[in-house]
Every structure is written in structure tokens, then in C-alpha cells.
Amino acid sequence: MDIVGVLADAMRTAVGPIAAAYAIAGIGLNLQFGYTGLLNFGHVAFMLVGAYGTAITVDDGGPLWLGILVGMGAAILLGLLFGLPTLRLRADYLAIVTIAAAEVLRIVVRGGGESSFTHGVFGIQRFANSFFDANPIPGGDYGIGRLSFTQRGLWVLAVGWSVVALTAVLVALIARSPWGRILRAIREDEDAARSLGKNTFVVKLQSLVVGGAIASLAGTLLAIDRQDVRPDTYLPIVTFAIYTMVILGGPATRLGPILGAIVYWFILQFTDSFLREAIDAGWIPTSIISADDIAPVRFALVGLGLMLLMIFRPQGMFGRREEVLIDGR
């Protein structure tokens, strides 16, 4: 049993580019769901348009920076598309429309053949070379002991976590403003905010669009890291994983989505590596859990952890307990 190796694996994933991308998406969702109370169940669609906006633009000969902006612009349009017809209606309609529209979008992107501009199921590869060419980090491996990253990995990490920091500061600043106060009022009771002269429709739309634009950066980061976009990366389960992270960290907190993403990926990778080692070492007989079962079992363990958290710490890691105990009426 190589416990140091297991921990190093878990740490590498917890601070890795995927965790950074999910943290960014979580920061966007936290604005929409945590502060404003919007039930956006199609968050993954914002990541999809971010990733595809970037990939398609570069694939058609555009520069990478333009691709990132195109992705963000597409996310803003998508936010308007989601919000304009639904945000005047009861809260549930946004949930229904977003979850359906996100799937429709994925299936449409998937539907084209290889000659379509999304390249259908084949996706688009090797569009971020200019990003890696700009890597200023000298060659070699970096890290402490067994926890190490390549020159390439470190560059993605540096950029990724910088974006995490920037978006987290941005959301923290706008959330503590009078505009942010309207967000929380909408979450608590939208009619009360309307009765006090607040145009809640516009503010909800702004929250949805800004959160979506942030999530597009998460999609872009994931795509750049893998140098690959494929429609089937953007399944609805991604949205719910992000919800898990936001709730784990504590909704409407500044650091919640970031720490939520780190802890989520740590637990997921730790259980994966740990179970693998335990099976190899013969601690767990393969008649109980075989190597093929590890992937589902680790999600079951994350689910169990989340249940325990909701029972013993319903406010998440960073939330305030008093807030949860308050009767909403």
C-alpha cells in the first residue's frame, strides 16, 4: 500500500487544471444560485459554448484570445436566451428550460458530421498550441516530492488558478455592492424586492449572464488543457457536480466554490487511488469490489459524504450556521 502515492495523486487532482476549471464554473454558479437563488440546471451549456467558441474560432484560423472572447460572447447570448423567456415566470421555469436546453445544445453540437463546423462526435483537437507556445516556464518537472507537475501542467495551473482568483474577486466585489444586495433580496423573496421598486427581472438576467460568462471561461480552460473538445464532455452530470461543489463549500460564500471544488476532486481521486491500491494489496477481495467497480463506488462515497455534510453541517464548509437555521418565512 503506497499511501504517499495515493495522497500525492489526490493532491495533484485537487489542485489540477480540472479542479481549477470546476472552481471557475462554481464561482459563476454561486453568483446565480448562491446569491440570487436562480435554479440554473444547464450550467454545463455555458462551459460548452465557452469551449466550442474557443475551439471553432481557432480552427477557422482566428487567434486564441479572440476565441476566448467569442466563447464568452456566446455564453452571454445563451444567458439571454435562457433568461428572457423564463425569468418573468415562476422560478421553476428557468430550471426546466435550462436543463432541457443544455441537452439540446449538446445533441445539436454532436449531430453534425465531420464536415460540420463542430465536427460532430469527433470534436476539435489541437487548437491551443499558441497557448502552450507562450509558456514562459523553463522545461523540467516542478513540485515537492511525489507531487510534481510538468512544465506544461504548471503553465495551465498558473493561468487557471489566476482566473479562479480574478473571477472570485470580481464576484466578491459585485456581491457586496447594492446590486449584490438586490441579488440576495431576490433569493429571499422576489416579490418583496419588486414591492420596493427593484426591477428584479433585469437584475436576475444580469446575474444569469455574468455567471454564465464566468462559466464559459471554465469551459475554455478545460478545452485548452486537453487540447480537445467533444460534445460528450458536457453531460448534465457536470452541472450537478458543480452544484455539489458549491453546496459542499457553502453557497453565497466567497471561498466556498473554490474550496468545494478542491475538496470534491480530492475525495474523488483519493477514493479512486485508495480503492485501487487496496484491491492490489489484497485488502479488499475482488469478489466485493473489482477494479471495474471503482468508478461508480467513488461517486457513491462522495454522495455519502455529501449526505453526512447536509446532516451535520448543512451550511457547507464556509456557510454561517445561523443562516441555515433561519425559517425562510
Binding site: E188, D189, R329
Partner: peptide, 12 residues
């Protein structure tokens, strides 16, 4: 206006 069932913004 105010409301019959008070709409205090509880978690503010």
C-alpha cells in the same frame, strides 16, 4: 405596499 404574510428578507 406591504404584504398580508410579511415578507421580511429572512437571511439578510
Amino acid at each position: 405596499r406591504t404584504f398580508q404574510l410579511t415578507k421580511a428578507l429572512a437571511r439578510m
